[in-house]
Amino acid sequence: MSRVITQEVARGLYKATRTAHVDADVAASFKVGDAIQARNVNPTGHTRLPRYIRGKQGVVAADHGIFQFADSLAHGGGKQPQHLYSVKFTAQELWGADAPAQDSLYIDLWDDYLEKMA
């Protein structure tokens, strides 16, 4: 028998208790300013690495700290806490030479999505 949703249960659903931030001691593979390339991978299940970013080159703009990894959580692989970075890609890198030279896109990418530029 499922639990009846009372007013108290409803209140609890919207409390700020779902941070994905994890207090863990995990080394960062990258630092702000590092040039990176997003891995060109094609997982069959859930991922937060969109296709338009895969294989593209960017620069680490900020380190948000350590977060649970959405991909592994979705696949029953646990939290696999790791650094989550804000990574800057130029509009021209993503969309070609016709895009305005000064425009850019920032996206949050986990350590496992990234590789260092040679």
Partner: peptide, 15 residues
């Protein structure tokens, strides 16, 4: 403005 910078933020992850 053409000379201004546009920044897109894709909130794909946890922020």
């Amino acid at each position: 403005a053409a000379e201004a910078e546009v920044r897109v933020w894709d909130s794909n992850a946890e922020l």
